[in-house]
Write a protein that binds this DNA or RNA. Structure first.
Length: 300
DNA sequence: CATTCGTGGCA
DNA sequence: TTGCCAAGAAT
C-alpha cells in the first residue's frame, strides 16, 4: 500500500454533494416558500416560523401572514396583540414578537427590503446563524453553507460515521462547505437538498437508508451502522413546566376580547405560585401587558 | 456550554 | 400510553 499516490481522503468526497443535488431534483417536496417569485420577506417569515416547528403546521399560517402583511412595513404597523393572535399555536410566541421587531428594523434601516448579506441578517432580532444563512441562500441565491439539525445529522452519518450529531459547532460550516458542488448554482441547491435529505430520508428516528442516494458512500453504513455512543440526549419535559403554564395563560388571553382580571387566569393553572411566576415572565417578555386598572391583556 | 422557550403528531 | 422530536435563538 506504499505506492498509492492518489489514495482518496476519508469521507464521501465531493461527488456526494452532486448526487444529493440530483436526488433533490426528483424527491423535493413542493413547499410554497420554495416556489418561483417568493421574495426575501416571504422566505424570512417561513424560516422563522419553521424554527423548531413542523412544516405541516407552518404552511397555513405562513399563507395567512403573507396575505395580511406582504411587506415588513405592514407587519411593523400591526400591534403585538394582532401578531400574537395571528401566530396561533405555532409555539414559542416570542418568535412572533421578534419577527415584528425585525420587520420594523428592515422597514427603517433597509428600505423595507430584507437584506441579503449574512451580517445584516444576523443583526436582526430572532435571526441567528442558521436563519441568516437560509435567507441569504434560499431567498437570494447566495452561495452559503446552511446548517440546521437535519444537516448536522446527515453530516454526522455520511462524513463522520456517527449515528447522531454532536452539538452545533463552528466546524459544521466547514464540513458542509467541503461537500458543496463547485458550481455556485448547484451549491445553492445543495444547501436545501441536504436539508431535505435529512428531513425525508436520513431522519432522526429510523433512517430510510434504502431510499438514500448516498448510502454506498455513507461512512456510518460502511462502519456497520454503529449505535450512538455516550449518553442519550436529554429530551425536554413539557407537562408541568413553565412553558406549559405560559402557554395556558396565553391561551386565555388570546381568546379574550377584553382585558381580564387575575381571577380569570386561575383556571389556566392550579398552582398560584407557578401561575404568578409565569404571568410575570410573560409580562417581562412583552407577551402580556397590564392595564392601568390592573387587568391583563395581549399588548395593544 | 447548558437551559429555556410551545405545541401536537406519531411510533 | 408515553416518549420522541420538528428548517433555532437568546442568555
Amino acid at each position: 500500500m506504499t505506492s498509492s499516490p492518489t489514495r482518496p481522503a476519508p469521507g464521501p468526497g465531493p461527488e456526494a454533494g452532486e448526487v444529493i443535488v440530483d436526488w433533490f431534483a426528483t424527491a423535493a417536496r413542493d413547499l410554497p416558500w420554495r416556489r418561483p417569485g417568493v421574495d426575501g420577506w416571504a422566505v424570512l417569515v417561513s424560516e422563522v416560523m419553521l424554527q423548531q416547528t413542523p412544516v405541516a403546521r407552518v404552511e397555513p399560517v405562513w399563507r395567512e401572514w403573507l396575505a395580511r402583511w406582504p411587506a415588513p412595513s405592514a407587519l411593523a404597523a400591526a400591534s403585538p396583540a394582532e401578531v400574537i393572535r395571528a401566530w396561533g399555536k405555532l409555539g414559542y410566541p416570542r418568535r412572533a414578537l421578534r419577527l415584528r421587531e425585525a420587520a420594523a428594523a428592515i422597514a427603517e434601516r433597509h428600505g423595507d427590503v430584507v437584506p441579503s448579506s449574512v451580517p445584516d441578517l444576523e443583526a436582526l432580532p430572532g435571526i441567528g446563524t442558521y436563519t441568516a444563512r437560509a435567507v441569504a441562500c434560499f431567498g437570494y441565491g447566495r452561495r452559503q453553507p446552511v446548517v440546521d439539525t437535519n444537516v448536522r445529522r446527515v453530516v454526522a452519518r455520511l462524513v463522520h460515521g456517527r449515528a447522531e450529531a454532536a452539538n452545533a459547532r463552528a466546524a459544521d460550516l466547514a464540513d458542509i462547505a467541503a461537500l458543496a458542488p463547485e458550481d455556485d448554482d448547484r451549491a445553492v441547491r445543495f444547501s436545501v437538498a441536504i436539508m431535505e435529505l435529512g428531513a425525508l430520508v436520513c431522519v432522526a428516528g429510523t433512517p430510510r437508508c434504502g431510499a438514500c442516494p448516498v448510502r454506498e458512500r455513507c461512512a456510518w453504513r460502511l462502519a456497520g451502522s454503529p449505535a450512538h455512543e455516550g449518553p442519550a440526549r436529554r429530551v425536554q419535559k413539557f407537562a408541568g413546566t413553565d412553558r406549559q403554564v405560559r402557554g395556558r395563560l396565553l391561551d386565555v388571553l388570546r381568546a379574550a376580547s377584553e382585558p381580564v382580571d387575575a381571577a380569570a387566569l386561575e383556571p389556566a393553572w392550579d398552582d398560584p405560585a407557578q401561575r404568578a411566576r409565569c404571568l410575570d415572565s410573560l409580562l417581562t417578555d412583552g407577551l402580556v401587558e397590564q392595564t392601568e386598572d390592573g387587568l391583563f391583556r395581549l399588548p395593544a
